[in-house]
Amino acid sequence: MEQILQMTQEKITIRDLNLFYGDFHALKHINMDIPNQEITALIGPSGCGKSTFIRVLNRMNDLIDGCSTTGAVTLDGTDISRIDVTELRTRVGMVFQNPNPFPMSIRHNVEYGPRMQGIRNRHRLSEILENSLIKAALWDEVKDRLNKSALSLSGGQQQRLCIARAIAMEPEVILMDEPTSALDPIATKKIEELIRDLKQEYTIVIVTHSMSQAGRISDRTAFFLLGEVKEYGRTADLFERPEHDETQQYIQGHFG
């Protein structure tokens, strides 16, 4: 494991991270290095803290009353608590479990982030719109109805729109919290292909419930159990030669 970490360039490092909801110790002593332009999957049974963990990375937990953290998380070597939260979120985008496009047109959904950053130039916005939708593999399907409501799209299209919306911010990292759990198998397949393509440009951290999805798309996998990282390594290694019995049992479907 030490060897692997030395070979790659880390995008995000996590050192001795603890997270508390009031008195409840939700994340315990987490140490992780997330490499650049790779897909890192987080797996584990429900309530193990993987979703909580991913929300630490763009400080979405700041919104929750009574939530506090100790330890250090750095992005490109800078502690994220010292980065302005809105800037951090433009650098670390997020896609949620349920597709949540805004109740506005497809165009306005994608342009929303850049507009909030003060980009007003129509030409520039159109460029961002087209690029993002192309990257999210949605352009061909929606190019003729950009001004239609985003809510008129199918679930899979809506999720790809949400990915396009995140891409429009030109982030460095994209966090995905079970992005396919609300979708049918065909839509899931499309999203998975998309995620693999996005790896060329972005560092991706994905929480997933599906072992096979982690196996198919990720380079690395972390196994969470009861707020701890039980095991973290190359996906192939972790699936074929897990170091811990719990990992083995979880992968084989004994619990979770």
């Binding site: 919104l63 809105t86 979120r89 997020m94 949620f96 496009p101 929303y112 982030g113 909030m116």
Partner: peptide, 8 residues
Amino acid sequence: EASLALGA
């Protein structure tokens, strides 16, 4: 959440 996650 979606809006805040986009840096708004």
